[in-house]
Amino acid sequence: MNVLVLEDDPELSKYLGSGLGELGHHSRLVTSGHEALDLLADEQFDVAVLDRMVPGLDGLSVMKQARDGGCQTPILMLTALGGIEDRVEALEGGADDYLTKPFAFAEFAARLIALARRPAPQTLQQNLVVGDIEMNLARRTVRRAGLPIDLQPREFSLLEQLMRSPDRVVTRTLLLERIWNFGFDPQTNIVETHMSRLRTKLNQGFAHNAIRTVRGSGYIMNPADD
């Protein structure tokens, strides 16, 4: 296990590094928050241990800036501040665990190992692509063959549901539940009306219908190469 340790107390830092080494782990010991932040951005660590109260750029600031920069390394916040508000602030700021001083090394090591075993968080999917249609979920944009398609919110949501399950029929009932929050059939053609508008916008200028109706079932994406 490769561990980054930010701790300005030389005795404690040496103690942690020595103990981790005896367990077969590699530790990178630093006393500067700026150095820790640079290392988190440039190197890969299984876990990072950040002392909250280091001079200059403190551990809490290091963690927040690292998280803002996309760092997903598990972080154990190490601090003498043991109040509930302090723990909440650290956890809400991006810490995965929190350990107050003084502590037993056995507990410290066990918490690090537990953090390192956690599965890495999955990167949120930003783009959906089916055939020549591409949807950017973050920007809420849709293109077909590179051409922008201007969709209303409901139309975008309809297309998103279809593109998330491109090989399966998406039923009318499911669309009513997920887009209109209806747990019943309102006995209207609300789905059909919005689907017709969506198709018109997607198919304008194209010979191939992007969405296929499966009678009695629902709708499914219809890539041009099918």
Rank of each mutant, 00 (worst) to 15 (best):
L16D: 14
Q152G: 05
G131A: 07
E192I: 00
I84K: 15
A116D: 03
D86N: 15
G70Q: 09
R87N: 02
N127V: 09
Q152W: 09
L176V: 00
D38I: 08
A90F: 08
S18Y: 08
I211W: 07
I84Y: 04
R212M: 03
S217R: 10
E177V: 04
D150V: 03
S157Q: 06
Y98R: 09
R87P: 01
V169H: 01
S13R: 02
T193V: 02
R87G: 05
L23T: 01
M77I: 03
Q44C: 15
A110L: 11
A104N: 06
F108P: 01
F182W: 04
G83D: 04
A120N: 06
L202Q: 05
L99T: 11
R199F: 13
I84F: 08
M221P: 04
S165Q: 15
L78T: 03
D9K: 14
L20K: 01
E85C: 07
K101Y: 06
L78W: 02
H25G: 12
G70F: 07
G70H: 03
V5L: 14
R67P: 00
V191F: 13
V5N: 09
R139K: 10
P102E: 01
C71Y: 05
T171I: 08
L159V: 02
I113L: 09
M53G: 02
T188V: 01
S61E: 12
A95K: 07
A106G: 00
T73Y: 03
T173N: 13
P186I: 04
L16A: 11
D42M: 07
L176Q: 05
T100R: 00
N209C: 11
N203I: 00
R215Y: 12
V49I: 09
I179E: 02
D226I: 04
L12T: 10
V170D: 15
A41M: 02
R67H: 03
L124I: 05
N2A: 07
L4I: 04
S157E: 11
R111H: 08
H25C: 10
T73R: 03
D38S: 15
Q44E: 04
I149Y: 14
A116T: 01
G17A: 07
V142W: 10
S165M: 13
D68Q: 15
G56H: 13
I190V: 10
P74W: 10
D86R: 12
L23Y: 06
G205N: 02
R117P: 08
D46P: 04
M1D: 06
V30N: 05
T73H: 03
A145M: 10
R143M: 14
P10M: 12
L20F: 02
I84P: 14
Q125V: 09
V169I: 06
K201R: 03
L6V: 00
A138G: 05
A110S: 15
L147V: 14
T73N: 01
N222V: 08
A109H: 11
E89L: 03
I84G: 12
